[in-house]
Simulated assay, not measured.
Amino acid sequence: MKRIFVTFIVMLLSAKVFASVYVIHDATESSVRSLTFQLSALLPSSLQAKPVRSSAFDQNIAALQNDDILVTIGRDSYSQICSTVNAGIVIATFIGQEEYLNIQKDCLIPSSGVFSGAPLDKHFALLNAVWFDRKPLAVLYSDALFIDRQKMEKEAAEYGFELRFLKTDTDRLSVLKSVNFLLEESEVILSLVDTRLYQDGVAQDILKLLFHKQRIMIGSSFAFVRAGSLFAIHSDSRSKLTALVERIRAWNDSELLIEADYPDMLRVTFNPYLIRSHGVVLPSASYLKDKYGLCADTQC
Protein backbone atom coordinates (compact mmCIF):
# COMPACT_ATOMS: atom_id res chain seq x y z
CA MET A 1 0.00 0.00 0.00
CA LYS A 2 2.86 2.34 0.85
CA ARG A 3 4.51 1.61 -2.54
CA ILE A 4 1.26 2.50 -4.36
CA PHE A 5 1.01 5.79 -2.46
CA VAL A 6 4.63 6.72 -3.28
CA THR A 7 4.06 5.87 -6.94
CA PHE A 8 0.96 8.09 -6.99
CA ILE A 9 2.90 11.03 -5.52
CA VAL A 10 5.68 10.60 -8.09
CA MET A 11 3.10 10.59 -10.89
CA LEU A 12 1.58 13.82 -9.58
CA LEU A 13 4.93 15.54 -9.36
CA SER A 14 5.94 14.48 -12.86
CA ALA A 15 2.60 15.21 -14.52
CA LYS A 16 2.49 18.15 -16.88
CA VAL A 17 0.79 21.18 -15.40
CA PHE A 18 -1.35 22.73 -18.11
CA ALA A 19 -1.38 26.45 -18.57
CA SER A 20 -4.43 28.60 -18.12
CA VAL A 21 -5.57 30.64 -21.13
CA TYR A 22 -7.17 33.98 -20.28
CA VAL A 23 -8.81 36.16 -22.93
CA ILE A 24 -8.44 39.75 -21.72
CA HIS A 25 -10.81 42.26 -23.29
CA ASP A 26 -12.84 45.45 -23.09
CA ALA A 27 -15.25 44.44 -25.85
CA THR A 28 -18.92 43.51 -25.63
CA GLU A 29 -19.47 40.37 -23.58
CA SER A 30 -21.49 38.54 -26.23
CA SER A 31 -18.87 38.93 -28.97
CA VAL A 32 -16.01 37.87 -26.69
CA ARG A 33 -17.97 34.87 -25.37
CA SER A 34 -18.53 33.73 -28.95
CA LEU A 35 -14.87 34.23 -29.83
CA THR A 36 -13.74 32.39 -26.68
CA PHE A 37 -16.08 29.48 -27.43
CA GLN A 38 -14.61 29.17 -30.93
CA LEU A 39 -11.09 29.34 -29.52
CA SER A 40 -11.77 26.64 -26.92
CA ALA A 41 -13.20 24.36 -29.62
CA LEU A 42 -9.86 24.54 -31.48
CA LEU A 43 -7.71 23.92 -28.40
CA PRO A 44 -6.95 20.57 -26.75
CA SER A 45 -9.36 19.64 -23.95
CA SER A 46 -6.63 20.40 -21.39
CA LEU A 47 -6.62 24.06 -22.48
CA GLN A 48 -9.85 25.97 -22.07
CA ALA A 49 -9.99 29.69 -22.73
CA LYS A 50 -11.60 31.91 -20.09
CA PRO A 51 -12.83 35.42 -20.95
CA VAL A 52 -11.93 38.10 -18.41
CA ARG A 53 -12.73 41.79 -18.58
CA SER A 54 -9.64 43.98 -18.16
CA SER A 55 -10.92 45.66 -14.98
CA ALA A 56 -11.55 42.30 -13.31
CA PHE A 57 -8.22 40.90 -14.45
CA ASP A 58 -6.37 43.76 -12.73
CA GLN A 59 -7.66 42.52 -9.37
CA ASN A 60 -6.20 39.02 -9.86
CA ILE A 61 -2.76 39.69 -11.34
CA ALA A 62 -1.00 38.27 -8.27
CA ALA A 63 -2.47 34.82 -8.94
CA LEU A 64 -0.82 34.49 -12.39
CA GLN A 65 1.63 31.65 -13.00
CA ASN A 66 4.66 31.76 -15.29
CA ASP A 67 3.12 29.26 -17.72
CA ASP A 68 -0.19 31.11 -18.06
CA ILE A 69 -1.13 32.40 -21.51
CA LEU A 70 -2.80 35.79 -21.82
CA VAL A 71 -4.66 36.49 -25.05
CA THR A 72 -5.51 40.16 -25.45
CA ILE A 73 -8.25 41.57 -27.67
CA GLY A 74 -7.33 44.93 -29.17
CA ARG A 75 -4.62 47.52 -28.57
CA ASP A 76 -5.75 48.80 -25.17
CA SER A 77 -5.85 45.37 -23.51
CA TYR A 78 -2.42 44.52 -24.89
CA SER A 79 -0.99 47.80 -23.62
CA GLN A 80 -2.48 47.21 -20.18
CA ILE A 81 -1.06 43.69 -19.87
CA CYS A 82 2.38 44.69 -21.12
CA SER A 83 2.68 47.50 -18.58
CA THR A 84 1.35 45.70 -15.48
CA VAL A 85 1.98 41.93 -15.71
CA ASN A 86 5.32 40.24 -15.00
CA ALA A 87 4.35 36.55 -15.26
CA GLY A 88 3.20 34.37 -18.16
CA ILE A 89 3.22 35.29 -21.84
CA VAL A 90 0.91 37.50 -23.87
CA ILE A 91 -0.42 36.97 -27.39
CA ALA A 92 -2.07 40.05 -28.86
CA THR A 93 -4.94 39.71 -31.34
CA PHE A 94 -7.12 42.15 -33.31
CA ILE A 95 -4.25 44.58 -33.37
CA GLY A 96 -2.24 46.20 -36.15
CA GLN A 97 1.44 45.48 -36.64
CA GLU A 98 2.41 49.10 -36.05
CA GLU A 99 0.26 49.27 -32.90
CA TYR A 100 1.84 46.07 -31.63
CA LEU A 101 5.42 47.19 -32.28
CA ASN A 102 4.84 50.49 -30.49
CA ILE A 103 3.80 48.65 -27.32
CA GLN A 104 5.90 45.50 -27.60
CA LYS A 105 9.26 47.26 -27.28
CA ASP A 106 8.48 48.05 -23.61
CA CYS A 107 6.51 44.89 -22.75
CA LEU A 108 7.41 43.32 -19.40
CA ILE A 109 6.72 39.71 -20.46
CA PRO A 110 7.41 37.58 -23.58
CA SER A 111 5.05 38.63 -26.33
CA SER A 112 3.66 37.48 -29.66
CA GLY A 113 0.66 38.43 -31.76
CA VAL A 114 -1.67 37.82 -34.67
CA PHE A 115 -2.01 40.98 -36.73
CA SER A 116 -5.10 42.43 -38.35
CA GLY A 117 -4.86 43.98 -41.79
CA ALA A 118 -2.11 42.81 -44.15
CA PRO A 119 1.60 43.37 -44.89
CA LEU A 120 2.30 46.60 -46.75
CA ASP A 121 3.93 44.81 -49.68
CA LYS A 122 0.62 43.08 -50.39
CA HIS A 123 -1.08 46.47 -50.66
CA PHE A 124 1.66 47.92 -52.85
CA ALA A 125 1.68 44.91 -55.18
CA LEU A 126 -2.08 44.90 -55.72
CA LEU A 127 -2.31 48.69 -56.00
CA ASN A 128 0.47 48.62 -58.58
CA ALA A 129 -1.67 46.29 -60.70
CA VAL A 130 -4.96 48.21 -60.55
CA TRP A 131 -4.07 51.88 -59.95
CA PHE A 132 -1.88 53.62 -62.53
CA ASP A 133 -1.69 57.15 -61.10
CA ARG A 134 1.77 57.47 -59.58
CA LYS A 135 1.09 60.45 -57.34
CA PRO A 136 2.45 59.86 -53.83
CA LEU A 137 0.46 57.67 -51.49
CA ALA A 138 -0.51 59.35 -48.21
CA VAL A 139 -0.03 57.63 -44.84
CA LEU A 140 -1.95 59.22 -41.97
CA TYR A 141 -1.27 57.92 -38.47
CA SER A 142 -1.46 58.69 -34.76
CA ASP A 143 1.22 58.52 -32.08
CA ALA A 144 -0.11 55.06 -31.14
CA LEU A 145 1.85 53.55 -34.05
CA PHE A 146 5.51 52.70 -34.53
CA ILE A 147 6.33 53.94 -38.04
CA ASP A 148 9.56 52.84 -39.72
CA ARG A 149 9.57 55.38 -42.55
CA GLN A 150 12.76 54.17 -44.15
CA LYS A 151 11.56 50.58 -44.37
CA MET A 152 8.11 51.57 -45.65
CA GLU A 153 9.57 53.95 -48.26
CA LYS A 154 11.89 51.21 -49.49
CA GLU A 155 9.00 48.76 -49.86
CA ALA A 156 6.88 51.33 -51.68
CA ALA A 157 9.73 52.22 -54.07
CA GLU A 158 9.98 48.58 -55.18
CA TYR A 159 6.52 49.00 -56.72
CA GLY A 160 7.08 52.52 -58.08
CA PHE A 161 5.33 54.44 -55.30
CA GLU A 162 6.37 57.32 -53.06
CA LEU A 163 4.92 57.87 -49.61
CA ARG A 164 3.91 61.04 -47.78
CA PHE A 165 3.65 60.65 -44.00
CA LEU A 166 1.68 62.80 -41.59
CA LYS A 167 1.21 62.19 -37.88
CA THR A 168 -1.98 63.77 -36.56
CA ASP A 169 -3.85 64.40 -33.36
CA THR A 170 -6.90 62.17 -33.15
CA ASP A 171 -9.72 64.64 -32.54
CA ARG A 172 -12.10 64.89 -35.51
CA LEU A 173 -11.15 68.44 -36.53
CA SER A 174 -7.41 67.74 -36.51
CA VAL A 175 -7.85 64.55 -38.52
CA LEU A 176 -9.94 66.20 -41.23
CA LYS A 177 -7.48 69.10 -41.48
CA SER A 178 -4.67 66.58 -41.90
CA VAL A 179 -6.58 64.74 -44.61
CA ASN A 180 -7.16 67.98 -46.53
CA PHE A 181 -3.47 68.78 -46.29
CA LEU A 182 -2.45 65.36 -47.62
CA LEU A 183 -4.88 65.56 -50.52
CA GLU A 184 -3.05 68.57 -51.94
CA GLU A 185 -0.53 66.17 -53.49
CA SER A 186 -2.03 62.71 -53.01
CA GLU A 187 -5.08 60.98 -54.39
CA VAL A 188 -4.84 57.83 -52.31
CA ILE A 189 -4.68 57.43 -48.54
CA LEU A 190 -3.23 54.12 -47.39
CA SER A 191 -4.81 53.34 -44.04
CA LEU A 192 -3.01 51.37 -41.35
CA VAL A 193 -4.69 49.59 -38.46
CA ASP A 194 -4.84 52.49 -36.01
CA THR A 195 -7.46 52.08 -33.29
CA ARG A 196 -6.76 55.46 -31.74
CA LEU A 197 -7.09 57.33 -35.03
CA TYR A 198 -10.16 55.57 -36.45
CA GLN A 199 -12.45 55.82 -33.44
CA ASP A 200 -15.82 57.48 -32.79
CA GLY A 201 -16.83 57.57 -36.44
CA VAL A 202 -13.69 59.36 -37.67
CA ALA A 203 -13.13 56.76 -40.41
CA GLN A 204 -16.61 57.44 -41.81
CA ASP A 205 -15.95 61.20 -41.74
CA ILE A 206 -12.71 60.72 -43.67
CA LEU A 207 -14.36 58.52 -46.28
CA LYS A 208 -17.19 61.02 -46.78
CA LEU A 209 -14.61 63.76 -47.35
CA LEU A 210 -12.71 61.58 -49.82
CA PHE A 211 -15.92 60.76 -51.69
CA HIS A 212 -16.74 64.45 -52.17
CA LYS A 213 -13.19 65.18 -53.33
CA GLN A 214 -13.15 62.12 -55.61
CA ARG A 215 -10.20 60.63 -53.78
CA ILE A 216 -9.85 57.10 -52.44
CA MET A 217 -8.67 55.18 -49.41
CA ILE A 218 -7.16 51.71 -49.27
CA GLY A 219 -8.79 50.18 -46.21
CA SER A 220 -7.42 47.92 -43.50
CA SER A 221 -10.55 45.82 -42.88
CA PHE A 222 -13.82 44.68 -44.42
CA ALA A 223 -15.61 47.44 -42.49
CA PHE A 224 -13.61 50.08 -44.39
CA VAL A 225 -14.82 48.69 -47.71
CA ARG A 226 -18.42 48.77 -46.59
CA ALA A 227 -17.93 52.39 -45.49
CA GLY A 228 -16.37 53.49 -48.80
CA SER A 229 -12.74 52.45 -49.31
CA LEU A 230 -11.64 51.06 -52.70
CA PHE A 231 -10.45 47.72 -51.36
CA ALA A 232 -9.00 46.10 -48.26
CA ILE A 233 -6.70 43.14 -47.70
CA HIS A 234 -7.58 41.48 -44.42
CA SER A 235 -8.23 38.20 -42.62
CA ASP A 236 -11.37 36.77 -41.06
CA SER A 237 -11.80 35.66 -37.45
CA ARG A 238 -11.32 32.00 -38.33
CA SER A 239 -7.90 32.66 -39.87
CA LYS A 240 -6.86 34.75 -36.87
CA LEU A 241 -8.00 32.01 -34.47
CA THR A 242 -6.06 29.35 -36.40
CA ALA A 243 -2.88 31.43 -36.11
CA LEU A 244 -3.60 32.09 -32.43
CA VAL A 245 -4.10 28.38 -31.67
CA GLU A 246 -0.80 27.57 -33.38
CA ARG A 247 0.97 29.97 -31.00
CA ILE A 248 -0.82 28.70 -27.90
CA ARG A 249 -0.04 25.07 -28.74
CA ALA A 250 3.62 25.82 -29.46
CA TRP A 251 4.07 27.53 -26.10
CA ASN A 252 2.09 24.94 -24.13
CA ASP A 253 3.83 21.95 -25.74
CA SER A 254 7.44 23.14 -25.88
CA GLU A 255 7.60 26.74 -24.60
CA LEU A 256 8.26 27.89 -28.15
CA LEU A 257 7.12 31.47 -28.72
CA ILE A 258 6.24 31.89 -32.40
CA GLU A 259 6.91 35.42 -33.62
CA ALA A 260 4.05 37.83 -34.19
CA ASP A 261 2.78 37.77 -37.77
CA TYR A 262 -0.25 37.91 -40.04
CA PRO A 263 -2.47 34.86 -40.58
CA ASP A 264 -1.56 32.65 -43.54
CA MET A 265 -4.95 33.13 -45.21
CA LEU A 266 -5.53 36.69 -46.43
CA ARG A 267 -8.48 37.82 -48.49
CA VAL A 268 -9.20 40.90 -50.56
CA THR A 269 -12.54 42.70 -50.69
CA PHE A 270 -13.35 45.29 -53.36
CA ASN A 271 -15.94 48.05 -53.29
CA PRO A 272 -17.94 47.43 -56.50
CA TYR A 273 -19.28 50.99 -56.75
CA LEU A 274 -15.84 52.60 -56.52
CA ILE A 275 -14.30 49.99 -58.79
CA ARG A 276 -16.80 50.95 -61.52
CA SER A 277 -16.64 54.72 -60.93
CA HIS A 278 -12.84 54.79 -61.14
CA GLY A 279 -12.68 52.42 -64.10
CA VAL A 280 -10.56 49.85 -62.27
CA VAL A 281 -10.06 46.53 -64.05
CA LEU A 282 -9.84 43.74 -61.50
CA PRO A 283 -7.62 40.67 -61.80
CA SER A 284 -9.40 37.32 -61.86
CA ALA A 285 -9.80 35.31 -58.66
CA SER A 286 -7.27 32.73 -59.88
CA TYR A 287 -4.74 35.47 -60.72
CA LEU A 288 -5.18 37.07 -57.29
CA LYS A 289 -4.46 33.71 -55.69
CA ASP A 290 -1.51 32.72 -57.88
CA LYS A 291 0.16 36.14 -58.16
CA TYR A 292 -0.54 37.72 -54.77
CA GLY A 293 -1.55 34.82 -52.54
CA LEU A 294 -4.91 36.48 -51.88
CA CYS A 295 -8.31 34.88 -51.70
CA ALA A 296 -10.96 36.86 -53.60
CA ASP A 297 -13.74 37.56 -51.14
CA THR A 298 -16.38 35.84 -53.28
CA GLN A 299 -14.23 32.71 -53.59
CA CYS A 300 -13.13 32.28 -49.96
Rank of each mutant, 00 (worst) to 15 (best):
V193Y: 13
L207K: 05
Q199T: 14
L182A: 01
L209I: 10
A223R: 14
K135C: 05
D200E: 15
K213Y: 08
P136G: 01
D171M: 04
Y141M: 01
S142F: 06
V139S: 03
K167F: 00
K135S: 13
L163Q: 06
E158F: 09
E187C: 11
V139Q: 02
A156T: 01
K135I: 04
L137A: 02
L207F: 11
I216A: 13
A203G: 06
A157T: 07
F181V: 06
S220E: 13
A203M: 11
V175G: 00
E185D: 10
A138F: 08
Y141G: 00
K151D: 15
I189W: 07
Y159E: 11
Q214E: 15
R215A: 13
D143I: 02
K167P: 01
T168E: 06
R215F: 07
K167T: 07
K167Q: 12
F211D: 14
W131L: 03
S191L: 12
H212C: 06
V193N: 01
L209Y: 08
E162G: 06
F132Q: 11
Y159K: 15
S221W: 10
S186I: 00
L197Y: 01
R215P: 13
D205G: 01
D148Y: 09
A203K: 14
H212T: 11
L182H: 03
L140F: 05
E187Q: 14
T168C: 04
A138T: 01
G219T: 15
K177Q: 08
R134M: 04
K154I: 07
R164L: 11
D205W: 08
F165T: 08
R196G: 08
V139R: 05
R172G: 00
S142W: 03
T168R: 05
Q150Y: 10
L166C: 05
H212F: 14
S178G: 08
A223M: 14
S191T: 12
G201N: 04
E184A: 12
I218D: 11
I216V: 15
I147A: 09
V139P: 03
L209P: 07
S221P: 13
S174F: 01
P136L: 01
Q204T: 11
L183W: 00
E153A: 07
H212S: 13
I147Q: 08
Q199A: 15
I147D: 10
S174C: 01
S191F: 09
D200I: 00
R134F: 05
T168A: 12
L163A: 04
F165H: 06
Q214H: 15
Q150V: 13
D205H: 12
Y159D: 04
I189M: 06
E185C: 00
A138G: 05
L190F: 12
V202S: 03
S178E: 01
R149W: 05
G160L: 07
K213A: 12
L182P: 01
L192S: 02
F211L: 13
V193T: 03
Q150G: 07
S221H: 15
H212Y: 13
N180M: 00
R164Q: 15
S178C: 02
I216K: 10
D194M: 09
H212R: 10
L176H: 02
V202K: 00
V139K: 04
L166E: 14
L210Y: 04
V193L: 09
V139H: 01
R196L: 14
R149N: 09
L140S: 06
T195I: 04
S178M: 03
S186R: 02
P136S: 04
S178Y: 02
L197G: 00
E155W: 03
Q199E: 08
L166W: 07
L176A: 00
F161Q: 11
M152H: 05
I206W: 09
